Amino acid sequence: MLANMGHAMDNGFLSKLAFWQTSQFMGNVGVFIASNSLWVCKPQQGQLAPVISQFLVQKNNWSQAFEALKSQFGRVRVQLVLSQQYYQLLQVEKPNVEPGEVTQALIWSVKDMVSEPVTDIHLDYFESSFISSSKVNVVVSSRQFLMQLASACDANGLDIAGVSIEELALSHVLAHDNMAHMLVAHLPQQELLLLVVKAGEVLMQRRVRGFNHLNKATLEELKQGLADNLSLEIQRSMDYFESQLRQAPVGSISILAEGDSSSLANLVSANFNQKVVAVNHDGVSNLLAQLALQELARGEV
């Protein structure tokens, strides 16, 4: 659930859209909403590996996709994680208003920064307890799109537990200790995401263009400059984190990407004192579905 970092928000991302009645559900599933499919993770009893399924979304027919989900898993509670194309993440000054009025005031702060008309803006925000700043992170999505998802779930008797975003879900990949850690994450054909997290809180996030096909790079291409270009972007982010946000250097760098991520991590590690590791996974979309379940736990704190 989209939450103020450090504690769950009183009102979730879909609080005003929750017009259905909850009843008996057959467990929880995590759902990553990608460009044309749902990636779904259902935990299993004991030590069994979770079940991961992919359901294609044909011509934006969300109801059909969630119907297929229900056919396999039954009436379940779903924790959704939106892929980047379905939201914008902005940093803006926090309005100087009463706490209960912040969300409404933020709409007017971001209205000229987003593509959605004011009447179609649905937003939430989070901020860090570690960094003293007058700014907050604002997540903006289309109200119409969220209503499509809500209606599709409602029509199939599914309960939406919450809605989150890639940056918050991916924070679960990194160690939860008293040090900051960096994650370099890449989904095929998407921009690169550089994320700094400390004790589960997102302290910094940055999207970088030019690496859309990183997952298809050969070892030779990585050696011939791609790994160094990536290292340069990592260094830029680290410099900003240390000098502008006045934070101690990150303790480690993790690379989450498809393709030859192990070789990429080895090449990048030559440029840094920090330990650089490749995150083990069976597909980044697959992993995001699993992380959605951890976002469900965050919302229940």
Rank of each mutant, 00 (worst) to 15 (best):
A175W: 02
S83H: 13
M26L: 12
L183V: 01
D177G: 07
Q205C: 07
H213V: 01
I107R: 14
L170F: 09
H176A: 14
M182F: 01
A68W: 00
L187P: 07
Q54L: 01
M5V: 04
L82T: 02
S35P: 02
W62Y: 14
R75L: 04
H172N: 05
I107F: 05
S231D: 11
S115P: 00
Q64Y: 01
Q274R: 09
S35V: 01
I253G: 07
R207Y: 14
N178R: 02
S53Q: 13
G12C: 14
L82P: 04
L232Y: 14
A292F: 10
E93W: 06
A152R: 05
M204E: 00
V268R: 00
V279M: 09
V250C: 10
E295H: 02
D10L: 10
L203Q: 10
N280G: 07
A155I: 04
V29M: 01
L219R: 09
Q190T: 06
L293V: 02
L288P: 13
N156S: 03
L14A: 09
L48E: 13
W20T: 07
L146S: 06
M238V: 11
D239C: 03
E221K: 14
V140S: 06
S141G: 15
S132L: 08
W62G: 03
S262A: 13
G200A: 13
C153G: 05
M113N: 09
